[in-house]
Design a protein around this nucleic acid. Structure first.
Length: 524
DNA sequence: TGGCTCGTTGTGAGA
DNA sequence: GTCTCACAACGAGCC
């Protein structure tokens, strides 16, 4: 059976060679191996109308990170006597390109890493429908997460655990990593008429004019990921003492976390136990799995409406405030510096993410978490659907976390770590000469100081878009009201008198949507 | 069913 | 610098 010896490994998220169950399954028994990645123009095509340099779906830092990861994957495959076969999506449809290649190359076995995102599930179903019809064997091992989300949900009686602790209790020990090393892969088979693309650079994709921009110091790829992990783990004391909440969010020259998250698509299973979850390094990996599991088990996880674990909150619509936040023009230097770091580097510290997410939603602007989620998703080099949505639900107090009176201060939170404001001075050069006592609140500087610092507030740098004390108090009040409404609605769901909840819902235009949520809850 | 515990990472005041 | 407390009080999981 000639066909049965031709196998394809289809790379999507796990752009790595080591500890890759899909690659391992594909190489075993294969006479010829086709390692494939499909370029999706929707992620790569420059969009001049986008809010910042990049495509419609990915900022340029994220595009660059992907391309570097692909180049490294190709290089590592070549060292094993193989290579990466880079295909272009047909009419923007990745699944079609895979199906066509399977047929044209007479592939007998297809292996790819299981992916639980809704987009991926739909894409992969299209491919597996095809392989079923064609009689092609398919293997889809779990490789992106430590656990299989479906397994955890089954163990928990069909529902995902909704707290981290209950997740840990159910999950147990993660499976062992694949430790087997191999020095060669089966040769690549004949690819016929196919146009195999070299890995393009961002410049070749048409992003040439941004070469003057400050770029992310984080290079993509498994080689860099392994180097970074090795360097981090070599410092045993650092690992043993690692406590996530104690990291310094303003440390940008030498970040306080591992910065492994962007590479987790390439590497992670070799990290074994050191200290205790939830703040330890392994604890961080389990958080990933926690959000993956919930996101797989809860319909409409990535939106407020129709999401039964999400508080229904009447967020404000205010495009002007949203754009100021997105573009780093809120007038709060700490917030703006973080958003500028995000746009340029595609990465910022975990607690910096907390600060800006809280500010946008329940802390100051009362704008919908889905708006912020979209910005992060497009710009982050460690962009990840399940984790990004999970954290926005968390930070906006829509799910998982409900202490809405705990609000990060856009002034004092950063000051605690970086009283001189070095982080601000780096990312917002116009403030670089502002004296230390005004760097977090430049609008309070006397005009003479502003002139001396060559930064007039309201002209060279914006005035604050809100007064934090007033805005945060108002936000607390509105959160309290929204929670009360949600409580009343869930009481009526439990069969208690519903006339109260009717009355409570009657403010504004949220009556209809909240009623439909109530219906949805009733049917589930 | 209802009561209890506990939860990765808030702030500001005061000792 | 480090600690404790009030602030005002949530909900999932568990017994």
């Amino acid at each position: 059976m000639e066909a049965a010896t031709a196998a394809m490994v289809w790379f999507r998220k796990g752009l790595r060679v080591h500890d890759n169950p899909a690659l391992d399954a594909a190489r075993r028994g294969a006479g010829r191996l086709y390692p494939v990645f499909v370029l999706d123009p929707r992620y790569l095509r420059p969009d001049p109308a986008a809010a910042s340099p990049g495509s419609a779906r990915a900022g340029v830092a994220r595009v660059r990170f992907l391309l570097e990861s692909l180049a490294d994957l190709d290089a590592r495959l070549r060292r094993l006597g193989s290579r990466l076969l880079l295909l272009r999506a047909r009419d923007d449809d990745v699944a079609d390109a895979v199906c066509a290649a399977l047929k044209d190359w007479n592939i007998g076995k297809l292996c790819f890493e299981s992916d639980t995102e809704p987009y991926a599930l739909a894409r992969d179903k299209k491919v597996t429908d095809f392989t079923m019809a064609m009689g092609i064997e398919v293997v889809t091992p779990v490789g992106h997460t430590l656990f299989d989300p479906a397994d955890i949900i089954n163990k928990n009686g069909g529902r995902p655990p909704l707290t981290y602790q209950s997740f840990i209790a159910i999950a147990g020990e993660p499976p062992e990593a694949i430790l087997e090393e191999y020095s060669e892969l089966p040769p690549v088979g004949d690819t016929g008429e196919y146009e195999l693309l070299p890995v393009p650079t961002v410049e070749e994709l048409g992003y040439g004019d941004i070469s003057q921009e400050e770029i992310s110091p984080f290079r993509g790829g498994e080689t860099e990921a392994l180097r970074r992990m090795k360097a981090s783990l070599q410092d045993k004391e650092w690992v043993a003492k690692f406590e996530k909440p104690k990291g310094d969010p303003s440390a940008f020259l030498k970040p306080a976390t591992t910065v492994l998250s962007p590479y987790l698509k390439d590497v992670y299973r070799s990290v074994r136990n050191y200290t205790k979850p939830p703040v330890s390094l392994t604890g961080q990996l389990l958080w990933r799995d926690f959000f993956y599991t919930v996101s797989f088990g809860i319909p409409n996880f990535d939106q407020m409406k129709g999401n039964k674990i999400c508080k229904q909150i009447p967020w404000s619509e205010n495009e002007e405030l949203f754009v100021a936040w997105r573009d780093g023009r809120t007038g709060f230097p700490w917030i703006d510096a973080i958003m500028i770091q995000l746009r340029k580097w595609g990465w910022m510290h975990h607690l910096a993410r907390h600060s800006v997410a809280c500010f946008l939603t329940r802390g100051d602007l009362f704008i919908h978490w889905e708006k912020g989620r979209d910005v992060f998703e497009r710009l982050l080099i460690d962009s990840d659907w399940a984790i990004n949505n999970g954290n926005w639900l968390w930070l906006s107090c829509s799910s998982f976390f409900y202490q809405y009176h705990r609000i990060y201060s856009p002034i004092t939170f950063g000051k605690k770590y970086d009283p001189n404001g070095n982080y601000i001075r780096h990312f917002i050069p116009v403030l670089k000469d502002m004296p230390r006592e005004y760097i977090y609140e430049p609008w309070t500087a006397p005009l003479s100081i502003q002139k001396k610092s060559k930064c007039i507030i309201g002209k060279d740098y914006p005035k604050p878009v809100v007064d934090h004390d007033t805005a945060s108090k108002e936000c607390r009040k509105r959160m309290g009201e929204a929670y009360a409404s949600n409580r009343l609605d869930s009481n009526s769901f439990k069969g208690k008198p519903s006339n109260l909840s009717r009355r409570k819902w009657s403010h504004g235009d949220h009556d209809a949507s909240n009623s439909s949520i109530a219906k949805l809850l009733k049917t589930s």
